[in-house]
């Protein structure tokens, strides 16, 4: 019941809710937000647009894509901090339905247990999003860490990890300059043995000086 994955889910839901509340006055979030939450934070337009057709078959979200003003009032739990779009997006995610009421109570207990890499990735993402939110003109979103990309498969595609509104493709591409990654080789390890090694020597035995012998040889002429 309280497996690490479930706790992670609850943490991510909490993060998403906090962020939604902060975003709510500015940006409308529909059911698309719940679906696109499985997309990494730095995912741009194409992935989001691919998720757009999905809200239509979902019955409760007949106002999908219209934003919080068009969303029906929530009757399930109605916590003050929960975004309206969460009610719209609730049907596709039974896991979230099960744990949604609990996070405000259990949140303080989360740091007491060991933090998994997944949580680290989530918290890192939350920090990045919190940094980005207060600015009126949103700062460029940092590229997603590798760990953040790894959590998408584990979430099974149903758990919202971030409900941050997707940036328009043009804006996202303009704010994320491509930085080349330079991979330097490791410095060579110093050898404890000399690289050059002599295996044999020789010492010819010849009398007289070399100069005398050479001079004699050079003075030779044909008969």
């Amino acid at each position: 019941m309280s497996s690490p994955e479930q706790q992670i889910e609850r943490l991510s839901q909490l993060l998403a809710k906090v962020q939604k509340n902060r975003k709510q006055p500015r940006v409308g979030l529909g059911p698309m937000a719940g679906l696109s939450a499985t997309v990494p934070a730095n995912t741009t337009g194409p992935a989001v647009s691919a998720a757009k057709p999905l809200p239509a078959p979902q019955g409760p979200s007949s106002t999908g894509g219209l934003g919080p003003a068009a969303a029906p009032p929530r009757t399930r739990k109605a916590t003050p901090t929960e975004p309206i779009t969460a009610a719209v997006a609730a049907p596709p995610s039974p896991v979230r339905e099960e744990h949604a009421p609990e996070p405000p109570v259990r949140r303080p207990a989360a740091p007491a247990r060991p933090i998994s890499p997944l949580e680290t990735a989530l918290s890192g993402e939350a920090e990045r999003e919190e940094r980005a939110m207060p600015a009126p003109a949103r700062a460029p979103a940092p590229p997603a860490a590798p760990a953040a990309n790894e959590i998408a498969p584990r979430a099974g595609g149903t758990q919202p990890r971030s409900q941050r509104p997707p940036m328009p493709p043009a804006e996202a591409s303009a704010q994320q300059p491509i930085v080349p990654r330079v991979i330097e080789p490791d410095p060579p390890r110093a050898s404890t043995r000399p690289i050059a090694q002599v295996v044999s020597k020789h010492a010819p035995v010849v009398d007289a000086t070399f100069g005398a012998m050479l001079k004699r040889s050079l003075s030779l002429r044909p008969h």
Partner: peptide
């Protein structure tokens, strides 16, 4: 100077350098 040294010394030095460069014995 090579001309003033015994031949074996000169050849030993020359042979050592040749060996270091891999040009045989």
């Amino acid at each position: 100077p090579a001309n003033s040294l015994p031949p074996q010394v000169v050849i030993s030095y020359a042979g050592s350098v040749m060996s270091l460069y891999g040009w045989g014995r």
